[in-house]
Design a protein around this nucleic acid. Structure first.
Lengths: 229, 229
DNA sequence: ACAGAAAAGAGAGCAGTGCTCTCTCTGTTA
DNA sequence: TAACAGAGAGAGCACTGCTCTCTTTTCTGT
């Protein structure tokens, strides 16, 4: 019998996946504070110092979990957007927003890891930027498509200079075809989606909202009227 | 010389204040994860087990800090509201919102303690409800006053039954005189204020916003148009 | 006024954490 | 085949929250 020989690089990749797998179980069941290197090592039949061959610090492991979570969420939202016909910008908006909430409800601890208190004090590593942008880019594209379908005569204009306090070049890329006047509204809609979900998951709506799903769908509708038209 | 004799109850109150004082220094300088019972004890010249005469657990001490922070924020917002003449609902709205942001910027770790990831997993103690409501009540009163000044003919009405998914009795109390149709908008404005500030403090707006204060004041204006009229 | 109770603190200790250092063994590579 | 780098073991450091027992001081009810 020939034992399938795996190269050291392959074994290393497998071990990294194993560590992340066990860490994710702890994250799901006990939250981010319950992710313990020593317990991961015990689960894998290793000694704790062995883990440092793969992640040089606990924060580095958590960063890997953050990356995976951003990509999971991003993929879910991209799929939801793609499942609606391109011209139906309102339908796409709603599908994308509902996908965000669905993912957050299904993965509250992962959501908390992404949008709760940041662990890496106030400077996320650069590698998280791209995965974190996936959701934002989908929402921005939908808003952009909605405004591009508007007749030129109906394009609202403002005369305020926004360049001193908004990063217009970045926003223009994320919101292609959206009039500058709407940049603030887009930022509001974006942060409100996550503000609402954070309030929901963190318990601030307790006593105000009974059916969160229904309330959220109304919020999504109000926001659509606010940014799309 | 007569040493001013203090009763045991007085000494106890003083000691509790001392513990909280030192804990707050740690909170401000190192964040919530930097609040350590053993270090507090060392700072006070005590042994760590002595602290358990005053707070039976670390979470209990943190709850005390949460209470104080809610009351600080609530007082700041109440004062800001009171500093504007009652009829000027827009001015009051702006003053209250700016006071929230000012407090959050000046006390980022306290803000995080209140509106970041909850520590006490998903069930805040009842005693926090009242202090936490102070901000909400101010904002609700302003929105209420704005709508009460509207001529009855201009009151918008909707025909959707909202009682199945919103806690109408609670919201009616927090939003006196506000038409039911606006309850969702009020919830949006409320959660957007904190959603924006969380995004700002937690770094999600990096790359989009240059001058946060200016951006926030535009958000406040948009929200006012959204909830007050 | 005095005895009993309660409060406050000291000190030792438990179980747990992240992380480091040294040592050994085992594949890989020149 | 010899030198090297990767991987894991194991001991140990400094720290955490929390508990238990023991002593001293203060309050309180008869």
């Amino acid at each position: 019998m020939t034992i399938p020989k795996r190269s050291r690089a392959q074994l290393r990749a497998i071990q990294i996946d194993e560590i992340k797998r066990v860490a994710k179980v702890q994250l799901v069941t006990k939250g981010v504070s319950g992710v313990s290197l020593r317990e991961i090592a015990r689960d894998l039949g290793l000694v704790s110092s062995a883990l440092y061959r793969y992640f040089s610090t606990r924060d580095e492991l958590l960063t890997a979990l953050i990356l995976d979570a951003y990509n999971e969420l991003g993929e879910a939202v991209e799929k939801a957007d793609a499942s609606v016909v391109c011209d139906d910008t309102f339908g796409r908006w709603r599908a994308a927003c509902l996908a965000i909430r669905q993912w957050a409800s299904a993965h509250p601890h992962e959501y908390t890891l992404l949008y709760g208190t940041p662990l890496l004090d106030y400077h996320a590593p650069d590698q998280t930027i791209a995965p974190a942008s996936r959701v934002t880019l989908v929402l921005g594209r939908i808003v952009g498509d909605a405004h591009r379908r508007r007749p030129p005569s109906a394009i609202p204009t403002g005369n305020e200079d926004v360049t001193s306090w908004l990063n217009v070049s970045n926003l223009a890329q994320a919101l292609p075809g959206v009039p500058t006047l709407y940049y603030v509204r887009a930022l509001i809609a974006w942060s409100e989606i996550f503000g609402f979900l954070s309030f929901e998951l963190f318990g601030h709506f307790k006593g105000s909202i009974i059916d969160y799903e229904k309330a959220f769908s109304h919020v999504v509708e109000e926001l659509a009227n606010f940014v799309l038209y």
